[in-house]
């Protein structure tokens, strides 16, 4: 960053400001993408059967005939007051609909993250060792290549192997109907499908930074002078890595949020991601809006953390 003298102070003020502005921009984008394109909620509720007069009545009742920015403003201010509206499909409050799905998603995303983090660490250690041993080599090719593979392919390959050929786990991950904790075996496929691409992405982004940090002159100098490797790591390498690592964390959080939608739907796991996809299919706009905005907020929150950590270059 180009911040100068009172860098700490301006960062503490500017970073949250930037996050708030970006959040507002994202909310406009989400609202515009879902509300302003042709085919509004009245069309969705009418489903082609309602007459033009009924549609007009429905639009007036829901305020769909007002200008776009006015509708965005009232939507956003209602959201700030904790009111996200009601599902077009069931009529239940959106917050309740989503809240009912969050525990299942938390279990899945938490398990996936618990697997992703050590995998990224391992990948970075390997990248660092490689950088020390072969200084001219850029490395990171394998992880970068793996990020190209579509996540659905990972899902299908794991299902074909673990549940098709080896028959270790069931191919669908249905939650017990009465609630309660899920059987761990149903989590294997969704957790692996979420964690492996996220880990590859994390290593692709962070591995190069680790290798660069280890190649800095003061690090090689310290090692040559005989400073213990552990101290070099603590004093010269890890502080440089804090901010990039938090940025990668934001990417991983975003990957888990989007991947969750895919993985939960593919394996029939009834969490918030599956809700997002089924709401998209049913054109249940209020639910999609809050889920989309919520995922973006999670990513922005971690990016804000990354901005607040002092950058050492």
């Amino acid at each position: 960053m180009r911040l100068s003298a009172p860098a700490g102070l301006s960062r503490a003020v500017l970073a949250p400001l930037r996050a708030v502005v970006l959040l507002a921009v994202v909310s406009v984008a989400v609202f515009a993408a879902t509300e302003l394109l042709p085919g509004d909620a009245a069309d969705a509720v009418g489903a082609g059967r309602a007459s033009a007069a009924q549609l007009a009545g429905l639009r007036a009742e829901r305020g769909l005939d007002r200008p776009g920015w006015e509708r965005w403003a009232s939507w956003a201010s209602a959201l700030l007051h904790g009111d996200a509206g009601r599902s077009l499909l069931t009529g239940r409050p959106v917050v309740d609909v989503i809240g009912g799905r969050l525990p299942a998603t938390a279990v899945l995303a938490g398990s996936a993250f618990a697997l992703t983090a050590p995998l990224v660490l391992l990948g970075c250690v390997l990248a660092g060792r490689r950088a020390l041993r072969r200084p001219g080599d850029a490395g990171g090719g394998l992880a970068t290549a793996l990020t190209a593979v579509p996540q659905v392919v990972v899902a299908a390959a794991l299902a074909a192997l673990l549940s098709g050929v080896l028959r270790w786990v069931p191919p669908v991950s249905l939650l017990p109907p009465g609630g309660g904790p899920p059987d761990p075996s149903i989590l294997v496929l969704p957790v692996l499908t979420l964690a492996l691409p996220s880990a590859a992405f994390g290593v692709a982004l962070l591995g190069g930074v680790v290798a660069d940090a280890l190649r800095r002159p003061y690090v090689t100098d310290a090692l040559v002078r005989g400073v213990p490797a552990g101290r070099v790591l603590r004093r010269h390498v890890l502080p440089v890595l804090a901010a990039p690592a938090l940025r990668v964390l934001a990417v991983v959080v975003g990957g888990l949020a989007a991947g969750g939608a895919l993985v939960e739907t593919v394996f029939g796991y009834a969490g918030a991601g599956e809700l997002l996809v089924s709401s998209v299919a049913a054109r249940d706009t209020p639910v999609v809006q809050l889920l989309g905005l919520g995922s973006a907020t999670a990513v922005l929150a971690v990016l804000l953390l990354a901005d607040l950590v002092p950058v050492r270059s």
């Binding site: 993408a33 509300e35 939608a261 998209v280 054109r283 973006a296 990513v299």
Partner: peptide, 21 residues
């Protein structure tokens, strides 16, 4: 300014939100 956000928000989320309309 928005580059971090673009990198961090996975493409699938905007695609799903756009698929509503």
């Amino acid at each position: 300014a928005g580059a971090d956000l673009l990198l961090a928000v996975p493409v699938l989320l905007p695609a799903l939100v756009l698929a509503v309309s």
